[in-house]
């Protein structure tokens, strides 16, 4: 039960951290609703600040790394059992 919940939790968390299209189409990031992915898009591809956009992308990656480690640990354990 718990391993399954953990997998779903990690996957959904990662997916939600990366969310872009809903924010983009609903508010366009206005009224204080911008998220990292949306901000990254407007910085890099609309305001021409490629450096700032890339920095936001790397920040997003840093946020995700702990979750990647959890996933890898789990997979290795599963492979050793198999």
């Amino acid at each position: 039960m718990w391993p399954t919940l953990l997998v779903v939790l990690v996957t959904i968390t990662v997916q939600t951290l990366k969310i872009f299209d809903i924010v983009r189409t609903m508010t366009g990031g206005n009224y204080g609703t911008s998220v990292i992915a949306n901000e990254m898009y407007s910085q890099a591809f609309q305001q021409g600040q490629v450096g700032q956009g890339s920095a936001l992308a790397v920040f997003l990656f840093l946020l995700v790394i702990p979750l990647v480690i959890v996933q890898i640990r789990r997979t290795r354990k599963a492979r050793e059992l198999a």
């Binding site: 990662v14 890099a44 890898i72």
Partner: peptide, 14 residues
Amino acid sequence: IFALQIVPLQMSLV
């Protein structure tokens, strides 16, 4: 490859 699944694709856009 397994770890790549979780890397945000935003990383590779630029």
